[in-house]
Structures are given as C-alpha cells and as structure tokens.
C-alpha cells in the first residue's frame, strides 16, 4: 500500500496471533504448500518405483553417486553461507552479508552446472524423456530386433572385421533374421556378444527394463527441484544490489528459509534417486 494513503488515513493497530513478521509467517505458510507439492511428486516416485516390475541400477542409467554426493555437499555449504549472510546482516555488516550471499549464489550456480552436466551424460546415452529422441526400451521388442539386425549387418558388411567377430555376427544375424525370433532371447545373446567394441551399445542403451519410468521420475524430480534452485538464484540476484544491513535482515531471513527448504528437498532426493 502506498504511503500517501496511509498518511491520510489513520494508522490502524492490530492484534497479531504469532510473534513474527508477516513476511516470515507468509513464507512458512508458503513452505507448507511446497511440502505438499513435493510430497505429491516424491510420493508418486516412491509408489511408481517400488511397484515397478523392474527398475534400472545406477550403472544402467549412468547415474554417478559421487556426483550426487558432491551436489549434496555444495547445497549444504550454500545453506551455511546464507545463514552466515543473515547473521552478518543482523550485525549490520552489509558488506560481509553481501559477500556471503554472493558465495551462496556461486554455490547454487555450481549445483545447477553439475546438474546440467549430469543431464548431458544422460542425454548422451539416449536417456531422454522425449519420445522422439529416446533410444531406450523397457523390453526388447520388434523395433529392438530390427535395430539389432541393422547393427549386425553393418558388422558383417565390414570388410575389415576380424574373422571371429564376423563369424559370431553372422551366426547371430541368422537367428535375428528368423521372423519368429523372440526379441528378448536375442537381447540376451546380444548382451553376451563381445567380439566388436560397439556391441556394448546393442545391450544397455537399448534395453533398460523400467528405463522409461526411471527417466520420467528422475527428470521430473530433479527438474522441478532445479527450477526451485534457479528461482532462488534469481531472488539472490535481485537482493544482492540492496544494502544488506539490519533493515534488510528480515528479507534475508525469508530468502534463507526458502533456500534451506530447497536444500532439504535435495537431502531427500539424493538418497531416493541415487542410492536406493
């Protein structure tokens, strides 16, 4: 409400029920809604995952636990720096508060950078949510069989291929050419095929049981969490130019509460997505 109006009307007195700033109360209420939002998402993940017929292991989907742990560490550090920024603001040392907030911003950006790298790795291996670009299948199907045939044909057509590989590929291709061939049985054989280096591609990136649901949940959870991180960074950028003295401690506290919440969400996502 703008000040001219308040100046004209009288200043009303109120009877607040809780001894905190309105902004802080509102932020805690907002966090309640966020809890419900992530409860729906994480709850969905848990039931879909543990009810699934199959679920990929971290190696299947190129998930790196150390990187996940590193990101956890980064977020914890950023939680410390933002709480230190708040303390500095309360002590009215705006410069220090600003420095801490800036470090928090950098840490948050690092988190997002690492996240982006992880996504890159997944995309590289064909782990897309996108129907058109996805190259994983929940189980070997006809499409898989034809993909395998094409791969085998390129080996048999290769004049430089060594004799052992050629023989093995020809034998497998013979089976694959049988219209009654069971794609799943083919997949089993292809998995054991080690004569040519590319054979690894015939196995993993193509058949990942439960891979579709894994990409769905992984990208949904990490993606929406990353959006929350990005929103936090945006707020930091808006707050940084301000003078962060005691007058702004309340603002900094609100921002901090939000950031800690984002940290807590990750604290749960890390074991659920990487370690389970």
């Amino acid at each position: 409400m703008d000040s001219t109006a308040s100046a004209e009307s009288i200043q009303l007195r109120y009877q607040p029920a809780v001894p905190i700033r309105n902004g802080k109360l509102m932020l805690w209420l907002f966090l309640s809604t966020e809890v419900m939002f992530f409860a729906a998402l994480i709850g969905t993940y848990i039931v879909l995952r543990f009810g699934a017929a199959a679920w990929p292991t971290p190696t299947d989907v190129h998930l790196s636990e150390p990187i996940g742990a590193l990101n956890t560490f980064i977020l914890i550090c950023s939680s410390v720096t933002i709480v230190l920024a708040l303390e500095s603001a309360r002590a009215d040392s705006g410069g220090r508060a600003k420095a801490y907030l800036f470090v928090t911003l950098l840490l948050g950006a690092a988190f997002l950078g690492i996240k982006a790298y992880e996504y890159q790795v997944k995309f590289h291996h064909g782990l897309h949510v996108d129907r058109a670009r996805r190259t994983i299948y929940d189980q070997a199907d006809l499409e898989y069989a034809s993909g395998l045939r094409a791969a085998l044909r390129s080996v048999t057509a290769d004049t430089n291929a060594d004799a052992a590989a050629l023989a093995a590929a020809t034998a497998l291709l013979e089976q694959a050419n049988n219209p009654d061939a069971d794609p799943s049985a083919l997949a089993l054989q292809a998995a054991e095929f080690s004569e040519v280096p590319e054979a690894a591609d015939w196995r993993l990136p193509i058949v990942i049981p439960g891979g579709h649901m894994w990409t769905s949940t992984y990208f949904l959870l990490t993606g929406l969490h990353a959006l929350h991180v990005a929103a936090g960074l945006l707020v930091f950028v808006c707050v940084l130019p301000l003078r962060l003295g005691t007058a702004r401690a309340g603002l900094l506290e609100n921002v901090g509460l939000y950031w800690h919440f984002v940290d807590i969400v990750w604290i749960f996502l890390f074991p659920l997505l990487y370690l389970f």
């Binding site: 309640s32 809890v35 409860a39 543990f50």
Partner: peptide, 23 residues
C-alpha cells in the same frame, strides 16, 4: 506451521501405496 503439512504429506504418499504401489 510445520507439522500439519508433514502429516498431510505422509497421508498422501501412504494412500497411494495400495492402488499405485501395488498396481
């Protein structure tokens, strides 16, 4: 300001188990 949301979150997740978890 904290407990109701946590309780609701648990109720929501738990109630998905019979129909979705055991699908």
């Amino acid at each position: 300001l904290t407990l109701p949301a946590c309780v609701m979150a648990i109720i929501l997740a738990a109630s998905l188990v019979p129909d979705v978890g055991f699908r």
